Lab assay of single mutants.
Amino acid sequence: FHVTIHVGDITFHIHGVSEEEVKKLEELVRRGADWREIKKTIEEIEK
């Protein structure tokens, strides 16, 4: 999957994300995680 996440003024683009990881990111966004937490999760996914 290709994912784009907008957190305030920050936009993250992630490529090659599995469905499971998409759900993890959706959950973070849904519970209102700040951009640092989302960035950390994205960095883990990209490894």
Rank of each mutant, 00 (worst) to 15 (best):
1 F>D: 07
1 F>P: 08
1 F>Y: 09
1 F>K: 12
1 F>H: 11
1 F>V: 14
2 H>W: 15
2 H>F: 09
2 H>L: 13
2 H>M: 09
2 H>Q: 09
3 V>Y: 06
3 V>D: 02
3 V>C: 06
3 V>F: 05
3 V>P: 01
4 T>V: 11
4 T>I: 10
5 I>D: 00
5 I>P: 00
5 I>L: 08
5 I>N: 00
5 I>W: 00
6 H>N: 08
6 H>K: 14
6 H>T: 15
6 H>E: 09
6 H>I: 14
6 H>M: 12
7 V>R: 03
7 V>L: 12
7 V>E: 02
8 G>A: 04
8 G>F: 02
8 G>C: 04
8 G>Y: 02
8 G>L: 04
9 D>W: 07
9 D>A: 06
9 D>S: 07
9 D>R: 06
10 I>V: 14
10 I>F: 15
10 I>K: 15
10 I>Y: 14
10 I>H: 15
10 I>A: 09
10 I>L: 13
11 T>W: 09
11 T>G: 02
11 T>H: 15
11 T>S: 07
11 T>D: 05
11 T>P: 02
11 T>A: 05
12 F>C: 05
12 F>S: 01
12 F>G: 00
12 F>K: 01
12 F>L: 09
13 H>Q: 05
13 H>G: 01
13 H>A: 02
13 H>R: 02
13 H>M: 02
14 I>F: 07
14 I>S: 02
14 I>V: 13
14 I>R: 01
14 I>Q: 02
14 I>E: 00
14 I>M: 09
14 I>H: 01
15 H>Y: 15
16 G>N: 15
16 G>L: 14
17 V>S: 05
17 V>M: 10
17 V>H: 03
18 S>N: 11
18 S>Q: 07
18 S>C: 04
18 S>V: 04
18 S>T: 15
19 E>D: 08
19 E>P: 08
19 E>V: 12
19 E>C: 04
19 E>Q: 11
19 E>F: 14
20 E>T: 11
20 E>L: 11
20 E>Q: 11
20 E>V: 09
20 E>F: 08
20 E>D: 11
20 E>S: 11
20 E>C: 06
21 E>R: 04
21 E>W: 14
21 E>G: 13
21 E>P: 01
21 E>L: 09
21 E>M: 14
21 E>K: 06
21 E>S: 11
22 V>G: 06
22 V>Q: 06
22 V>H: 05
22 V>P: 00
22 V>W: 15
23 K>I: 14
23 K>V: 11
24 K>H: 12
24 K>N: 08
24 K>L: 15
24 K>F: 10
24 K>E: 08
24 K>I: 15
25 L>Q: 00
25 L>H: 00
25 L>C: 01
25 L>G: 00
26 E>M: 15
26 E>D: 13
26 E>K: 09
27 E>P: 00
27 E>Q: 10
27 E>V: 05
27 E>N: 10
27 E>L: 07
27 E>T: 05
28 L>M: 12
28 L>C: 02
28 L>T: 04
28 L>H: 02
28 L>W: 02
28 L>Q: 07
30 R>P: 00
30 R>C: 05
30 R>T: 12
30 R>G: 06
31 R>K: 13
31 R>A: 09
31 R>F: 07
31 R>H: 11
31 R>M: 10
31 R>C: 06
31 R>Q: 13
31 R>Y: 05
32 G>E: 06
32 G>V: 03
32 G>N: 12
32 G>L: 08
32 G>H: 08
32 G>I: 03
33 A>M: 03
33 A>T: 06
33 A>S: 07
33 A>H: 03
34 D>P: 03
34 D>W: 01
34 D>T: 06
34 D>S: 08
34 D>H: 07
35 W>D: 07
35 W>Q: 10
35 W>P: 10
35 W>T: 09
36 R>H: 15
36 R>V: 15
36 R>Y: 13
36 R>S: 15
37 E>C: 02
37 E>L: 02
37 E>D: 12
37 E>M: 01
38 I>A: 02
38 I>F: 04
38 I>L: 07
38 I>Y: 01
39 K>F: 12
39 K>G: 09
39 K>Q: 15
40 K>P: 03
40 K>G: 09
40 K>W: 06
41 T>A: 10
41 T>R: 11
41 T>E: 07
41 T>P: 00
41 T>Y: 15
41 T>I: 14
41 T>L: 15
42 I>E: 00
42 I>C: 03
42 I>S: 01
42 I>W: 04
43 E>Y: 06
44 E>T: 10
44 E>L: 11
44 E>M: 12
44 E>Y: 07
44 E>A: 11
44 E>Q: 12
44 E>I: 08
44 E>R: 10
45 I>N: 03
45 I>M: 10
46 E>W: 11
46 E>Q: 13
46 E>H: 11
46 E>I: 15
46 E>T: 15
46 E>Y: 11
47 K>R: 13
47 K>H: 14
47 K>E: 12
47 K>D: 09
47 K>P: 06
47 K>F: 10
